[in-house]
Design a protein around this nucleic acid. Sequence first.
DNA 1: GCTCAAAGGTTCCCTCAAGGAACTCATCGT
DNA 2: ACGATGAGTTCCTTGAGGGAACCTTTGAGC
Lengths: 151, 151
Amino acid sequence: MQRTRFGDMACSIARTLDVIGEPWSPLILRDVYVGLTRFDQLQQDLGISRKVLAERLKWLVESGVLARRQYSERPPRFEYTLTDKGTELCDLLLVMVRWGDRWLAGEAGPPVLYRHHACGEIAHVEPSCSACGEPMRATDVDVLPGPGHAG
Amino acid sequence: MQRTRFGDMACSIARTLDVIGEPWSPLILRDVYVGLTRFDQLQQDLGISRKVLAERLKWLVESGVLARRQYSERPPRFEYTLTDKGTELCDLLLVMVRWGDRWLAGEAGPPVLYRHHACGEIAHVEPSCSACGEPMRATDVDVLPGPGHAG
DNA sequence: GCTCAAAGGTTCCCTCAAGGAACTCATCGT
DNA sequence: ACGATGAGTTCCTTGAGGGAACCTTTGAGC
């Protein structure tokens, strides 16, 4: 298939997709986030092919999103944990959850709820502006070329 | 390949991936968001195969993310526009931008900047809590089963 | 000591989706 | 009449995903 690599594009969306855009990668991230950290746990929970899982984990570790840690010397046993980079990537998952809950959940309602530590409420994420704190949606911004713009 | 469908999983992340998880889909969404709305515009900007582009557009329209609108009767000409559902999905893009800017942009800095209408500042999105307005990151929440939970 | 199971992958083959180019069809400009 | 444009569609080739079997090291049970 010789899939097109997005990493070289001058676009942070494309570069982010290069890291977690491949099938299964966000679900692997989700599972590690909720505490499924071992190879067989992931494989069984997701029903993913072992081959593809090995490829994805390798790539996520190379990308600095996950760390492969040996938690037992003998027998050798490994677990995958989130790095800081990977933890921040989980913000993306919460936004996906929000959209999926809102537009795809249907009658049954959200499959999973999130309670915010700070206030104790069941809530969801709202994108807000880093400068003024007001809501910041795609319709609330102007798009301008930045310093890393190509050409 | 008979790629695994994620739409049936009881997980809003998986369901969201079912809509925009395939290669190119988020980049198509980005392009439509910034105003590239016609087939040939998209094809040239992305360098995507025309076949795959046609498939993706069809799926995004079926999913209610894009609308296919005929803006010229003779000759027949079409454009793809964001629905409300699609516009809200663009929030996801802003979060991807944020992460890519922060972790992947390198020396050159962000390729694109975003100015918030409300305050006029160059800013980025921060996930905040819908209930209390405080920051809401992946580490700030407890995960609980919801009404749509399987089993 | 021998057998079995578990963890963590690796190897193999098969199918189907992505890439890429060529082709279609209707309409416009000249 | 001729070429260009927009919007796809068709065809072939390649390679990634699925699935199952296999491998290696270790620990547990008999």
